[in-house]
C-alpha cells in the first residue's frame, strides 16, 4: 500500500514519470487495437517478424540523424514485401519465409547498431526504457496513436472482412493487398512506439497478449477491440508501477502483467471454459437447444 502512495507521490513530482505513464497508456491502446487484427488474421508470427525487422531501420535513422519512425517504417515495409515476395515466388511456405527474412534483418540491425557506436542505446532498444522518453517521443507516439485510431475507425469494415473472409472481400472488388500492406505499415509504426516501453524483443507480447486475453471474453469484434486496448493500458500502468517500485526493467514488467491477465482469463473466461464443470454444462445446454430446434422445425 505504501509503495502505491509513493508511486502516486512520485507521479505528481517527477516529469519523467508522468511522461512514462502517458506513453505507456498510448502504447497500450494502439498495440491492443492493432494486435486484435494481427491475431484474428493468424499473423502473430508476422507481427513478431516485423517488430524485429525494424531494427536496421532504427540504426540507420540514428546514423543519418533522421526520425526513427521513418527509418523503421521503411525497413518494416521492405521486410513485409520481401516476406510476401519470397513466399509467392517459391515453394517455400510463409512461416519459413518469415523466419528467413526477419532473422536476416535482425542480424543486419545488430551490426548496424554496433557501427553506429551507441551501445547504451542497443540495450534500451532491445528491452525498452520507458523512464527516458523525451517530449518529442511523446509527440511522435501521440501522432502514431492518432493514425492507428483513424485507421481502425475509417477502415473498420475493410479490416473486419479481410480478417474474416478475404476471398469474399476480393470477389466484391476490394483491394485486399492494399489493406494488408496498410496494416503492415501501421504495425511498424506501433512497433517503433512500443519500442520505448517494452523494447523490440517484447513488442510482440504487447500486440498479442492483450488481444488474446480480450478474445477469450467476447464474441463481438467491437468489444474485443475496446477490451484489448483496456488490457493493454492496465498492463502498461501496472507494469510501470512495478518497474518504478521494484526497479525492474519496464518491458518485462509490463509483459508479465499482461501475461498474468491472460492466465486469469484462460482459467475463468466463459468462452474458454477451462473448468470441466462449466464446459460440460455448456455442451449439455447447447445439445438441449439444438434438439429443441430440431423438434420445432
Amino acid at each position: 500500500m505504501n509503495s502505491l502512495i509513493e508511486f502516486f507521490n512520485a507521479l505528481g513530482k517527477y516529469d519523467f514519470l508522468q511522461s512514462a505513464l502517458v506513453t505507456a497508456i498510448m502504447v497500450g491502446i494502439m498495440s491492443g487495437l492493432i494486435g486484435s487484427f494481427i491475431i484474428l488474421r493468424g499473423m502473430s508470427l508476422m507481427g513478431d517478424a516485423i517488430s524485429h525487422a525494424v531494427l536496421p531501420g532504427v540504426a540507420v535513422a540514428y546514423m543519418l540523424g533522421v526520425n526513427v519512425m521513418i527509418g523503421a517504417s521503411v525497413f518494416g515495409i521492405i521486410a513485409a514485401l520481401l516476406i510476401g515476395f519470397v513466399a509467392a515466388n517459391s515453394k517455400i511456405k510463409t512461416d519459413t519465409s518469415i523466419g528467413v527474412v526477419f532473422s536476416a534483418f535482425y542480424a543486419l540491425g545488430f551490426i548496424l547498431i554496433s557501427m553506429a557506436e551507441s551501445a547504451t542505446n542497443l540495450h534500451h532498444i532491445l528491452f525498452g526504457n520507458i523512464l527516458a522518453v523525451s517530449d518529442s517521443d511523446i509527440m511522435t507516439t501521440a501522432i502514431v496513436l492518432g493514425i492507428v485510431v483513424m485507421f481502425v475507425v475509417l477502415f473498420y469494415k475493410e479490416l473486419l472482412i479481410t480478417s474474416f473472409d478475404n476471398t469474399f472481400a476480393k470477389t466484391y472488388g476490394l483491394n485486399t493487398t492494399a489493406i494488408h500492406y496498410a496494416l503492415m505499415l501501421v504495425l511498424t509504426l506501433v512497433t517503433v512506439s512500443a519500442l520505448q516501453t517494452v523494447g523490440i524483443i517484447l513488442v510482440v507480447a504487447m500486440l498479442i497478449t492483450p488481444a488474446a486475453t480480450a478474445f477469450l471474453w467476447t464474441d463481438r469484434l467491437e468489444t474485443m477491440l475496446v477490451m484489448s486496448a483496456s488490457v493493454g493500458v492496465i498492463s502498461s500502468i501496472t507494469g510501470l508501477y512495478f518497474s518504478f517500485t521494484l526497479n525492474w526493467a519496464s518491458g518485462p514488467a509490463i509483459v508479465l502483467v499482461a501475461a498474468v491477465l491472460f492466465a486469469i482469463s484462460f482459467i475463468f473466461s466463459p468462452k474458454q471454459a477451462f473448468f470441466s464443470f462449466s464446459k460440460r454444462q455448456r455442451t449439455k445446454e447447447a445439445a438441449a437447444t439444438q434438439t429443441a430446434e430440431e423438434i420445432v422445425r
Binding site: 484474428l40 474474416f164 467476447t218 463481438r220
Partner: peptide
C-alpha cells in the same frame, strides 16, 4: 471469429 449472424450478413 468474433462475429454474429447479423453482422456476417451485413458484410
Amino acid at each position: 471469429f468474433p462475429i454474429n449472424v447479423l453482422d456476417l450478413v451485413l458484410t
